[in-house]
Design a protein around this nucleic acid. Structure first.
Length: 511
RNA sequence: GGCGGCGUAGCUCAGCGGUAGAGCAGGGGAAUCAUAAUCCCUUGGUCGGUGGUUCAAAUCCGCCCGCCGCUACCA
Protein backbone atom coordinates (compact mmCIF):
# COMPACT_ATOMS: atom_id res chain seq x y z
CA UNK A 1 0.00 0.00 0.00
CA UNK A 2 1.23 3.44 -0.90
CA UNK A 3 2.38 5.51 2.01
CA UNK A 4 0.55 8.78 2.46
CA UNK A 5 2.18 12.13 3.04
CA UNK A 6 0.35 15.27 4.15
CA UNK A 7 1.87 18.72 3.65
CA UNK A 8 0.32 22.07 4.50
CA UNK A 9 1.06 25.74 3.99
CA UNK A 10 -0.41 28.20 6.46
CA UNK A 11 -3.77 29.49 5.39
CA UNK A 12 -3.15 33.07 4.44
CA UNK A 13 -4.92 35.92 6.15
CA UNK A 14 -7.04 37.86 3.69
CA UNK A 15 -6.56 41.35 5.07
CA UNK A 16 -3.99 42.17 2.41
CA UNK A 17 -2.67 41.12 -0.98
CA UNK A 18 -0.29 38.19 -1.43
CA UNK A 19 3.42 39.02 -1.40
CA UNK A 20 6.69 37.17 -1.85
CA UNK A 21 6.59 35.80 1.70
CA UNK A 22 3.39 33.92 0.98
CA UNK A 23 4.77 32.68 -2.32
CA UNK A 24 7.97 31.53 -0.64
CA UNK A 25 6.20 29.34 1.91
CA UNK A 26 3.94 27.88 -0.73
CA UNK A 27 6.73 27.18 -3.20
CA UNK A 28 8.84 25.45 -0.57
CA UNK A 29 5.88 23.30 0.43
CA UNK A 30 5.18 22.66 -3.23
CA UNK A 31 8.70 21.45 -3.85
CA UNK A 32 8.35 18.95 -1.04
CA UNK A 33 4.92 17.84 -2.29
CA UNK A 34 6.18 17.32 -5.82
CA UNK A 35 9.26 15.52 -4.56
CA UNK A 36 7.22 13.13 -2.44
CA UNK A 37 4.88 12.38 -5.34
CA UNK A 38 7.81 11.53 -7.58
CA UNK A 39 9.21 9.43 -4.76
CA UNK A 40 6.10 7.27 -4.74
CA UNK A 41 4.05 8.74 -1.91
CA UNK A 42 0.32 9.36 -1.93
CA UNK A 43 0.53 13.09 -1.24
CA UNK A 44 -2.12 15.44 0.04
CA UNK A 45 -1.02 19.06 -0.27
CA UNK A 46 -3.21 21.71 1.30
CA UNK A 47 -3.24 25.49 1.11
CA UNK A 48 -5.97 28.10 1.50
CA UNK A 49 -7.11 31.28 3.18
CA UNK A 50 -7.98 32.35 6.69
CA UNK A 51 -10.92 34.70 6.53
CA UNK A 52 -12.30 35.50 9.97
CA UNK A 53 -11.49 38.05 12.62
CA UNK A 54 -11.86 41.67 13.41
CA UNK A 55 -9.17 42.82 11.01
CA UNK A 56 -10.92 41.29 8.05
CA UNK A 57 -14.20 42.76 9.13
CA UNK A 58 -12.55 46.17 9.29
CA UNK A 59 -10.64 45.79 6.01
CA UNK A 60 -13.91 44.92 4.27
CA UNK A 61 -15.61 47.94 5.78
CA UNK A 62 -12.74 50.17 4.65
CA UNK A 63 -13.05 48.75 1.17
CA UNK A 64 -16.77 49.43 1.27
CA UNK A 65 -17.65 45.82 0.65
CA UNK A 66 -19.77 43.18 2.26
CA UNK A 67 -17.44 41.06 4.38
CA UNK A 68 -18.04 37.83 2.52
CA UNK A 69 -17.71 39.55 -0.85
CA UNK A 70 -14.44 41.06 0.33
CA UNK A 71 -12.98 37.73 1.46
CA UNK A 72 -14.18 36.10 -1.76
CA UNK A 73 -12.14 38.59 -3.70
CA UNK A 74 -8.93 38.37 -1.68
CA UNK A 75 -9.14 34.61 -1.39
CA UNK A 76 -9.47 34.33 -5.16
CA UNK A 77 -6.35 36.45 -5.51
CA UNK A 78 -4.38 34.12 -3.22
CA UNK A 79 -5.60 31.18 -5.24
CA UNK A 80 -4.61 32.87 -8.48
CA UNK A 81 -1.18 33.58 -7.02
CA UNK A 82 -0.72 29.93 -6.05
CA UNK A 83 -1.70 28.87 -9.56
CA UNK A 84 0.61 31.42 -11.13
CA UNK A 85 3.54 30.20 -9.02
CA UNK A 86 3.02 26.58 -9.97
CA UNK A 87 1.82 25.51 -6.53
CA UNK A 88 0.33 22.05 -7.01
CA UNK A 89 -2.14 22.04 -4.13
CA UNK A 90 -4.69 19.24 -3.91
CA UNK A 91 -7.21 21.32 -1.99
CA UNK A 92 -7.67 25.03 -1.35
CA UNK A 93 -9.54 25.53 1.90
CA UNK A 94 -11.39 28.63 3.05
CA UNK A 95 -12.35 29.07 6.66
CA UNK A 96 -15.70 30.54 5.63
CA UNK A 97 -16.78 27.22 4.11
CA UNK A 98 -19.49 25.18 5.80
CA UNK A 99 -17.27 22.12 6.14
CA UNK A 100 -14.88 24.17 8.23
CA UNK A 101 -17.55 25.65 10.48
CA UNK A 102 -18.81 22.16 11.27
CA UNK A 103 -15.27 20.96 11.92
CA UNK A 104 -14.47 23.81 14.32
CA UNK A 105 -17.70 23.34 16.24
CA UNK A 106 -16.95 19.65 16.72
CA UNK A 107 -13.35 20.27 17.79
CA UNK A 108 -14.64 22.78 20.34
CA UNK A 109 -17.15 20.29 21.71
CA UNK A 110 -14.52 17.60 22.10
CA UNK A 111 -12.16 19.88 23.96
CA UNK A 112 -15.04 21.07 26.11
CA UNK A 113 -16.15 17.52 26.82
CA UNK A 114 -12.65 16.76 28.08
CA UNK A 115 -12.97 19.62 30.52
CA UNK A 116 -10.35 21.88 28.99
CA UNK A 117 -12.66 24.79 28.21
CA UNK A 118 -14.20 26.99 30.89
CA UNK A 119 -16.03 30.31 30.99
CA UNK A 120 -14.22 33.23 32.55
CA UNK A 121 -13.47 36.87 31.91
CA UNK A 122 -10.96 38.42 29.59
CA UNK A 123 -9.73 41.75 30.80
CA UNK A 124 -7.00 44.21 30.11
CA UNK A 125 -6.01 47.59 28.78
CA UNK A 126 -7.81 48.08 25.50
CA UNK A 127 -7.30 50.83 22.95
CA UNK A 128 -10.50 51.30 21.00
CA UNK A 129 -8.67 53.21 18.29
CA UNK A 130 -6.16 50.38 17.73
CA UNK A 131 -8.66 47.65 18.45
CA UNK A 132 -5.95 45.98 20.47
CA UNK A 133 -5.10 44.99 24.01
CA UNK A 134 -1.85 46.13 25.59
CA UNK A 135 0.19 44.89 28.46
CA UNK A 136 0.64 47.22 31.43
CA UNK A 137 4.36 47.43 30.62
CA UNK A 138 3.71 48.79 27.14
CA UNK A 139 1.74 51.76 28.39
CA UNK A 140 2.89 55.23 29.28
CA UNK A 141 1.17 57.55 31.70
CA UNK A 142 0.58 61.13 30.67
CA UNK A 143 0.92 64.05 33.07
CA UNK A 144 -2.86 64.24 33.34
CA UNK A 145 -2.92 60.64 34.54
CA UNK A 146 -4.37 59.02 31.42
CA UNK A 147 -2.63 55.95 30.09
CA UNK A 148 -1.83 55.65 26.43
CA UNK A 149 -0.71 52.85 24.13
CA UNK A 150 2.60 53.00 22.23
CA UNK A 151 0.56 54.31 19.31
CA UNK A 152 -0.61 57.21 21.44
CA UNK A 153 -4.16 55.92 21.60
CA UNK A 154 -5.86 56.19 24.98
CA UNK A 155 -6.60 52.88 26.67
CA UNK A 156 -9.31 51.78 29.04
CA UNK A 157 -9.66 48.77 31.30
CA UNK A 158 -12.22 46.46 29.79
CA UNK A 159 -13.63 43.20 30.97
CA UNK A 160 -15.65 40.83 28.82
CA UNK A 161 -16.83 37.27 29.29
CA UNK A 162 -14.65 34.80 27.44
CA UNK A 163 -14.13 31.10 27.18
CA UNK A 164 -10.68 29.92 28.10
CA UNK A 165 -8.63 26.96 26.97
CA UNK A 166 -6.77 25.26 29.80
CA UNK A 167 -3.38 25.63 28.12
CA UNK A 168 -1.63 25.66 31.49
CA UNK A 169 -2.51 21.99 31.93
CA UNK A 170 -0.48 21.00 28.87
CA UNK A 171 2.93 22.31 29.79
CA UNK A 172 4.42 18.96 30.75
CA UNK A 173 2.89 17.09 27.87
CA UNK A 174 4.23 19.67 25.42
CA UNK A 175 7.71 19.49 26.90
CA UNK A 176 7.59 15.72 26.62
CA UNK A 177 6.52 16.09 23.00
CA UNK A 178 9.55 18.27 22.19
CA UNK A 179 11.84 16.03 24.20
CA UNK A 180 10.73 12.81 22.54
CA UNK A 181 10.44 14.29 19.05
CA UNK A 182 13.45 16.50 18.45
CA UNK A 183 12.31 16.88 14.84
CA UNK A 184 8.96 18.34 15.82
CA UNK A 185 10.08 21.95 15.45
CA UNK A 186 12.56 22.96 12.79
CA UNK A 187 15.05 24.50 12.59
CA UNK A 188 16.52 23.54 15.96
CA UNK A 189 17.10 27.15 16.96
CA UNK A 190 13.33 27.62 16.86
CA UNK A 191 12.80 24.47 18.83
CA UNK A 192 14.91 25.95 21.59
CA UNK A 193 12.81 29.09 21.60
CA UNK A 194 9.60 27.14 21.73
CA UNK A 195 10.88 24.92 24.51
CA UNK A 196 12.04 27.84 26.61
CA UNK A 197 8.75 29.60 26.05
CA UNK A 198 6.82 26.62 27.36
CA UNK A 199 9.25 26.09 30.22
CA UNK A 200 8.59 29.66 31.25
CA UNK A 201 5.07 28.67 32.19
CA UNK A 202 1.82 28.71 30.23
CA UNK A 203 -1.26 30.78 30.95
CA UNK A 204 -4.71 29.73 29.89
CA UNK A 205 -5.74 31.07 26.53
CA UNK A 206 -8.76 33.21 25.81
CA UNK A 207 -10.49 31.47 22.92
CA UNK A 208 -13.70 33.38 22.36
CA UNK A 209 -14.66 36.99 21.67
CA UNK A 210 -17.87 38.87 22.08
CA UNK A 211 -16.78 42.19 20.55
CA UNK A 212 -17.32 41.26 16.92
CA UNK A 213 -19.31 38.78 14.83
CA UNK A 214 -17.13 37.83 11.89
CA UNK A 215 -16.14 34.41 13.12
CA UNK A 216 -17.33 30.93 13.82
CA UNK A 217 -20.01 30.85 16.54
CA UNK A 218 -19.12 29.03 19.72
CA UNK A 219 -21.53 26.10 20.08
CA UNK A 220 -24.37 26.85 22.48
CA UNK A 221 -22.94 30.22 23.49
CA UNK A 222 -24.77 33.04 21.75
CA UNK A 223 -22.66 36.15 21.26
CA UNK A 224 -19.33 34.32 21.34
CA UNK A 225 -17.23 33.68 18.26
CA UNK A 226 -14.12 31.57 18.29
CA UNK A 227 -10.65 33.00 18.69
CA UNK A 228 -9.22 33.26 15.18
CA UNK A 229 -6.30 30.95 15.80
CA UNK A 230 -8.44 28.11 17.08
CA UNK A 231 -10.53 28.57 13.96
CA UNK A 232 -7.54 28.85 11.65
CA UNK A 233 -5.48 25.91 12.91
CA UNK A 234 -8.45 23.60 12.66
CA UNK A 235 -8.34 23.94 8.87
CA UNK A 236 -5.67 21.25 8.78
CA UNK A 237 -8.09 18.60 9.98
CA UNK A 238 -11.16 20.04 8.27
CA UNK A 239 -9.50 19.35 4.93
CA UNK A 240 -9.09 15.70 5.94
CA UNK A 241 -12.83 15.46 6.51
CA UNK A 242 -12.94 15.96 10.28
CA UNK A 243 -14.98 14.91 12.14
CA UNK A 244 -15.92 12.14 9.71
CA UNK A 245 -13.29 9.47 10.28
CA UNK A 246 -14.62 7.56 7.29
CA UNK A 247 -13.98 10.51 4.99
CA UNK A 248 -11.79 9.65 2.00
CA UNK A 249 -9.03 11.93 3.24
CA UNK A 250 -9.10 11.19 6.95
CA UNK A 251 -6.18 8.77 6.59
CA UNK A 252 -3.87 11.66 5.74
CA UNK A 253 -4.06 12.99 9.28
CA UNK A 254 -1.75 13.58 11.13
CA UNK A 255 0.15 15.97 8.88
CA UNK A 256 3.73 15.10 8.07
CA UNK A 257 4.86 18.72 7.79
CA UNK A 258 3.26 22.06 8.51
CA UNK A 259 5.23 24.75 6.66
CA UNK A 260 5.07 28.09 8.51
CA UNK A 261 6.78 31.46 8.70
CA UNK A 262 8.77 32.17 11.82
CA UNK A 263 6.11 34.57 13.07
CA UNK A 264 3.55 31.84 13.61
CA UNK A 265 5.63 29.07 15.13
CA UNK A 266 4.11 29.39 18.55
CA UNK A 267 0.61 28.87 17.28
CA UNK A 268 1.66 25.72 15.45
CA UNK A 269 4.13 24.28 17.90
CA UNK A 270 2.41 25.12 21.20
CA UNK A 271 -1.29 25.90 20.85
CA UNK A 272 -2.09 23.51 18.02
CA UNK A 273 -0.65 20.35 19.61
CA UNK A 274 -2.30 21.35 22.90
CA UNK A 275 -5.70 21.72 21.20
CA UNK A 276 -5.26 18.34 19.56
CA UNK A 277 -4.18 16.66 22.79
CA UNK A 278 -7.23 18.09 24.48
CA UNK A 279 -9.46 16.72 21.72
CA UNK A 280 -7.75 13.33 21.75
CA UNK A 281 -6.47 13.62 18.20
CA UNK A 282 -3.07 12.60 16.81
CA UNK A 283 -0.39 15.30 16.57
CA UNK A 284 1.37 16.55 13.44
CA UNK A 285 4.89 15.23 12.99
CA UNK A 286 6.74 18.41 12.18
CA UNK A 287 6.43 22.18 12.10
CA UNK A 288 9.07 23.62 9.81
CA UNK A 289 9.57 27.36 9.90
CA UNK A 290 11.34 29.68 7.54
CA UNK A 291 12.92 33.12 7.78
CA UNK A 292 12.31 36.40 6.01
CA UNK A 293 13.55 37.85 2.78
CA UNK A 294 15.29 41.19 2.88
CA UNK A 295 14.89 42.96 -0.44
CA UNK A 296 17.77 44.97 -1.94
CA UNK A 297 19.14 45.39 1.57
CA UNK A 298 15.88 46.66 3.06
CA UNK A 299 13.32 44.87 5.11
CA UNK A 300 10.20 44.46 3.05
CA UNK A 301 7.33 46.61 4.19
CA UNK A 302 4.30 48.34 2.81
CA UNK A 303 5.44 51.72 4.05
CA UNK A 304 8.78 51.42 2.25
CA UNK A 305 6.89 50.48 -0.86
CA UNK A 306 9.29 47.65 -1.60
CA UNK A 307 6.84 44.80 -1.22
CA UNK A 308 7.60 42.22 -3.86
CA UNK A 309 4.69 40.93 -5.87
CA UNK A 310 5.60 37.33 -6.69
CA UNK A 311 3.86 37.22 -10.04
CA UNK A 312 5.83 40.26 -11.13
CA UNK A 313 9.10 38.51 -10.24
CA UNK A 314 8.11 35.45 -12.24
CA UNK A 315 7.30 37.69 -15.18
CA UNK A 316 10.66 39.41 -15.04
CA UNK A 317 12.92 36.42 -14.49
CA UNK A 318 10.84 33.34 -15.27
CA UNK A 319 8.84 31.23 -12.85
CA UNK A 320 11.23 28.29 -12.64
CA UNK A 321 14.15 30.66 -12.27
CA UNK A 322 12.49 32.36 -9.31
CA UNK A 323 11.50 29.08 -7.69
CA UNK A 324 15.12 27.96 -8.02
CA UNK A 325 16.46 31.21 -6.62
CA UNK A 326 14.16 31.20 -3.60
CA UNK A 327 15.24 27.73 -2.55
CA UNK A 328 18.90 28.02 -3.51
CA UNK A 329 19.87 31.42 -2.22
CA UNK A 330 19.45 31.02 1.53
CA UNK A 331 18.88 28.30 4.09
CA UNK A 332 15.16 27.75 4.62
CA UNK A 333 15.10 28.54 8.32
CA UNK A 334 17.12 31.74 8.31
CA UNK A 335 16.65 35.26 6.99
CA UNK A 336 18.34 36.11 3.74
CA UNK A 337 18.41 38.71 1.05
CA UNK A 338 17.20 38.99 -2.45
CA UNK A 339 18.55 41.45 -4.96
CA UNK A 340 18.58 41.85 -8.71
CA UNK A 341 22.30 41.04 -9.08
CA UNK A 342 21.92 37.96 -6.88
CA UNK A 343 19.01 36.65 -8.93
CA UNK A 344 20.79 37.33 -12.22
CA UNK A 345 23.91 35.61 -10.96
CA UNK A 346 22.03 32.43 -9.99
CA UNK A 347 20.23 32.41 -13.33
CA UNK A 348 23.24 33.05 -15.51
CA UNK A 349 25.92 31.14 -13.64
CA UNK A 350 24.07 28.11 -12.36
CA UNK A 351 21.07 27.69 -14.64
CA UNK A 352 22.34 29.01 -17.98
CA UNK A 353 26.07 28.25 -17.79
CA UNK A 354 26.42 25.23 -15.55
CA UNK A 355 23.27 23.25 -16.31
CA UNK A 356 21.67 24.67 -19.45
CA UNK A 357 24.90 24.82 -21.37
CA UNK A 358 25.93 21.34 -20.20
CA UNK A 359 22.74 19.88 -21.63
CA UNK A 360 22.99 21.95 -24.77
CA UNK A 361 26.60 21.02 -25.58
CA UNK A 362 26.01 17.32 -24.87
CA UNK A 363 22.83 17.12 -26.89
CA UNK A 364 24.07 19.11 -29.83
CA UNK A 365 27.03 16.75 -30.15
CA UNK A 366 24.56 13.87 -30.33
CA UNK A 367 22.45 15.75 -32.85
CA UNK A 368 25.39 16.56 -35.07
CA UNK A 369 27.73 13.59 -34.67
CA UNK A 370 25.38 10.72 -33.89
CA UNK A 371 22.57 11.64 -36.27
CA UNK A 372 20.37 12.46 -33.28
CA UNK A 373 20.39 8.81 -32.19
CA UNK A 374 20.89 8.05 -28.50
CA UNK A 375 24.13 6.07 -28.28
CA UNK A 376 24.57 3.01 -26.04
CA UNK A 377 26.77 2.69 -22.97
CA UNK A 378 30.16 1.05 -23.42
CA UNK A 379 32.55 -0.51 -20.94
CA UNK A 380 32.89 2.03 -18.15
CA UNK A 381 36.23 3.73 -17.65
CA UNK A 382 37.32 4.98 -14.27
CA UNK A 383 36.22 8.48 -15.19
CA UNK A 384 32.81 7.22 -16.35
CA UNK A 385 32.31 5.30 -13.14
CA UNK A 386 33.24 8.26 -10.97
CA UNK A 387 30.62 10.48 -12.58
CA UNK A 388 27.92 7.82 -12.74
CA UNK A 389 28.49 6.89 -9.12
CA UNK A 390 28.12 10.49 -8.03
CA UNK A 391 24.90 10.77 -10.03
CA UNK A 392 23.65 7.48 -8.63
CA UNK A 393 24.17 8.67 -5.06
CA UNK A 394 22.20 11.84 -5.64
CA UNK A 395 18.67 10.67 -4.96
CA UNK A 396 19.46 9.59 -1.41
CA UNK A 397 21.35 12.78 -0.69
CA UNK A 398 18.61 15.02 -2.02
CA UNK A 399 15.88 13.05 -0.26
CA UNK A 400 17.55 13.59 3.11
CA UNK A 401 17.77 17.31 2.46
CA UNK A 402 14.16 17.58 1.36
CA UNK A 403 13.05 15.75 4.48
CA UNK A 404 14.95 18.30 6.57
CA UNK A 405 13.86 21.27 4.44
CA UNK A 406 17.52 22.05 3.78
CA UNK A 407 16.65 22.77 0.18
CA UNK A 408 19.75 24.83 -0.52
CA UNK A 409 22.00 21.95 0.50
CA UNK A 410 20.10 19.50 -1.66
CA UNK A 411 20.53 21.82 -4.63
CA UNK A 412 24.22 22.20 -3.84
CA UNK A 413 24.59 18.41 -3.98
CA UNK A 414 22.97 18.39 -7.40
CA UNK A 415 25.24 21.18 -8.58
CA UNK A 416 28.32 19.27 -7.46
CA UNK A 417 27.35 16.60 -9.98
CA UNK A 418 26.65 19.18 -12.68
CA UNK A 419 30.09 20.72 -12.13
CA UNK A 420 31.65 17.26 -12.19
CA UNK A 421 29.88 16.59 -15.49
CA UNK A 422 31.33 19.78 -16.97
CA UNK A 423 34.78 18.60 -15.87
CA UNK A 424 34.11 15.18 -17.38
CA UNK A 425 33.06 16.48 -20.78
CA UNK A 426 36.19 18.62 -20.95
CA UNK A 427 38.52 15.77 -20.04
CA UNK A 428 36.82 13.32 -22.38
CA UNK A 429 36.47 15.90 -25.18
CA UNK A 430 33.89 14.02 -27.26
CA UNK A 431 34.30 16.63 -30.01
CA UNK A 432 37.88 15.40 -30.43
CA UNK A 433 36.85 11.74 -30.21
CA UNK A 434 34.58 12.41 -33.18
CA UNK A 435 37.70 12.34 -35.35
CA UNK A 436 39.50 9.44 -33.62
CA UNK A 437 37.06 7.08 -31.95
CA UNK A 438 33.40 7.48 -32.78
CA UNK A 439 32.34 4.56 -30.60
CA UNK A 440 33.95 5.99 -27.51
CA UNK A 441 32.51 9.39 -28.35
CA UNK A 442 29.03 7.88 -28.26
CA UNK A 443 29.75 6.18 -24.96
CA UNK A 444 30.93 9.42 -23.40
CA UNK A 445 27.84 11.25 -24.61
CA UNK A 446 25.64 8.52 -23.19
CA UNK A 447 27.29 8.85 -19.79
CA UNK A 448 26.48 12.54 -19.97
CA UNK A 449 22.88 11.97 -21.00
CA UNK A 450 22.41 9.51 -18.16
CA UNK A 451 23.91 11.96 -15.69
CA UNK A 452 21.82 14.89 -16.90
CA UNK A 453 18.78 12.65 -16.77
CA UNK A 454 19.29 12.05 -13.04
CA UNK A 455 19.84 15.75 -12.45
CA UNK A 456 16.78 16.79 -14.45
CA UNK A 457 14.60 14.16 -12.82
CA UNK A 458 15.58 15.33 -9.34
CA UNK A 459 15.12 18.98 -10.24
CA UNK A 460 11.54 18.53 -11.45
CA UNK A 461 10.04 19.53 -8.08
CA UNK A 462 11.87 22.85 -8.16
CA UNK A 463 11.57 23.67 -11.86
CA UNK A 464 8.71 21.61 -13.24
CA UNK A 465 8.29 23.09 -16.69
CA UNK A 466 11.98 23.61 -17.52
CA UNK A 467 12.84 20.09 -16.46
CA UNK A 468 9.95 18.69 -18.45
CA UNK A 469 11.48 20.28 -21.53
CA UNK A 470 14.93 19.00 -20.66
CA UNK A 471 13.66 15.46 -20.11
CA UNK A 472 11.82 15.64 -23.45
CA UNK A 473 15.13 16.39 -25.13
CA UNK A 474 16.87 13.55 -23.29
CA UNK A 475 14.37 11.02 -24.62
CA UNK A 476 12.75 10.34 -21.24
CA UNK A 477 9.10 9.56 -21.87
CA UNK A 478 6.54 11.46 -19.87
CA UNK A 479 5.52 8.37 -17.88
CA UNK A 480 9.12 7.53 -16.89
CA UNK A 481 10.00 10.56 -14.81
CA UNK A 482 9.50 9.25 -11.31
CA UNK A 483 12.48 8.51 -9.11
CA UNK A 484 11.78 4.79 -9.33
CA UNK A 485 11.97 5.04 -13.13
CA UNK A 486 15.63 6.05 -12.85
CA UNK A 487 16.33 2.35 -12.37
CA UNK A 488 15.25 1.67 -15.95
CA UNK A 489 17.84 2.63 -18.58
CA UNK A 490 16.81 4.78 -21.50
CA UNK A 491 16.14 2.99 -24.77
CA UNK A 492 19.32 2.87 -26.89
CA UNK A 493 19.00 3.95 -30.48
CA UNK A 494 15.96 6.16 -30.03
CA UNK A 495 15.87 9.38 -31.97
CA UNK A 496 16.18 12.46 -29.81
CA UNK A 497 14.41 15.70 -30.64
CA UNK A 498 16.64 18.57 -31.77
CA UNK A 499 18.14 20.31 -28.73
CA UNK A 500 16.85 23.70 -27.71
CA UNK A 501 18.21 25.91 -24.94
CA UNK A 502 16.23 25.53 -21.73
CA UNK A 503 17.73 28.37 -19.70
CA UNK A 504 18.48 31.55 -21.65
CA UNK A 505 20.89 33.96 -20.01
CA UNK A 506 19.30 36.99 -18.41
CA UNK A 507 20.32 40.11 -20.30
CA UNK A 508 19.57 43.56 -18.96
CA UNK A 509 16.86 45.25 -20.96
CA UNK A 510 18.22 48.22 -22.89
CA UNK A 511 17.22 51.32 -20.97
C1' G B 1 16.87 42.36 32.54
C1' G B 2 16.43 36.75 31.51
C1' C B 3 17.23 32.72 27.96
C1' G B 4 19.43 31.48 23.16
C1' G B 5 22.27 32.30 18.67
C1' C B 6 25.90 34.58 15.62
C1' G B 7 30.83 37.20 14.47
C1' U B 8 35.88 32.41 9.47
C1' A B 9 38.94 35.02 2.39
C1' G B 10 36.20 41.22 -1.17
C1' C B 11 30.82 38.76 -0.90
C1' U B 12 27.57 34.48 0.85
C1' C B 13 28.70 30.77 3.99
C1' A B 14 30.67 25.40 5.52
C1' G B 15 33.95 23.39 9.16
C1' C B 16 33.05 22.85 15.51
C1' G B 17 39.80 19.28 19.14
C1' G B 18 44.69 17.31 15.18
C1' U B 19 49.02 21.65 10.32
C1' A B 20 42.51 26.98 7.48
C1' G B 21 37.64 25.18 3.23
C1' A B 22 33.56 25.85 -0.86
C1' G B 23 30.78 28.87 -4.28
C1' C B 24 30.84 33.76 -6.36
C1' A B 25 34.16 37.93 -7.42
C1' G B 26 39.78 38.92 -8.81
C1' G B 27 44.54 37.04 -11.61
C1' G B 28 46.98 33.51 -15.18
C1' G B 29 46.60 29.51 -18.69
C1' A B 30 44.03 25.67 -21.85
C1' A B 31 40.28 24.38 -25.03
C1' U B 32 36.83 25.78 -29.02
C1' C B 33 31.57 20.79 -28.66
C1' A B 34 28.26 24.59 -26.39
C1' U B 35 23.68 29.75 -24.46
C1' A B 36 31.47 34.15 -25.35
C1' A B 37 28.91 29.08 -22.19
C1' U B 38 33.54 25.20 -20.14
C1' C B 39 38.04 23.25 -17.84
C1' C B 40 42.79 23.74 -15.13
C1' C B 41 45.97 26.62 -12.01
C1' U B 42 46.11 30.79 -8.81
C1' U B 43 45.91 35.65 -5.38
C1' G B 44 43.54 36.24 -0.80
C1' G B 45 42.18 34.98 6.13
C1' U B 46 47.05 36.27 12.79
C1' C B 47 38.92 32.04 12.01
C1' G B 48 35.62 39.64 16.52
C1' G B 49 39.08 40.73 21.06
C1' U B 50 41.33 38.73 25.35
C1' G B 51 42.62 35.19 29.16
C1' G B 52 42.55 29.84 30.19
C1' U B 53 42.14 24.14 29.53
C1' U B 54 45.06 20.73 26.30
C1' C B 55 50.75 17.53 23.54
C1' A B 56 47.27 20.15 20.12
C1' A B 57 41.70 25.26 19.70
C1' A B 58 38.30 28.45 14.44
C1' U B 59 36.66 24.13 17.18
C1' C B 60 36.13 23.44 24.74
C1' C B 61 35.72 27.18 29.11
C1' G B 62 35.75 32.53 31.27
C1' C B 63 35.48 37.67 30.35
C1' C B 64 34.93 41.85 26.79
C1' C B 65 33.07 44.13 22.14
C1' G B 66 29.47 44.09 18.10
C1' C B 67 25.07 42.19 15.75
C1' C B 68 20.42 39.15 15.98
C1' G B 69 16.26 36.03 17.88
C1' C B 70 12.66 34.69 21.84
C1' U B 71 10.48 36.70 26.32
C1' A B 72 2.15 34.90 25.36
C1' C B 73 -3.80 35.78 23.44
C1' C B 74 -4.60 41.33 19.13
C1' A B 75 -1.69 36.87 12.48
Amino acid sequence: MTQSFYITTPIYYVNGAPHIGHAYTSIAADVMARFKRLDGYDVFFLTGTDEHGQKVEKAARDAGLDTQAFTDRISADFKAMADAMGVSYDDFIRTTEDRHKASCAELWRRIERNGDIYLGHYEGWYAVRDEAFYDESELTTRPDGTRVAPSGAPVEWVREPSYFFRLSAFQDRLLTLYEENPEFVAPSSRRNEVTSFVKGGLLDLSISRTTFNWGIPVPDAPGHVMYVWLDALTNYITACGFPDENAPRWHYWPADVHFVGKDIIRFHAVYWPAFLMAAGLPLPKRVSSHGWWVVEGEKMSKSLGNVIEPRKLAETYGLDQIRYFLLREKPFGTDGSMSHPAIVSRINVELANDLGNLAQRSLSLIARNCGGILPARGPATEDDTALLTAAGALLDLVRVNIDRQTFHEGLEEIWKVIRAANGYIDRQAPWALNKTDKTRMGEVLRVLVDTIRVVATLLQPVMPSSMARMLDQLGVSADARTFAALETPLTDGQTLPPPQGVFPRYVEPVA
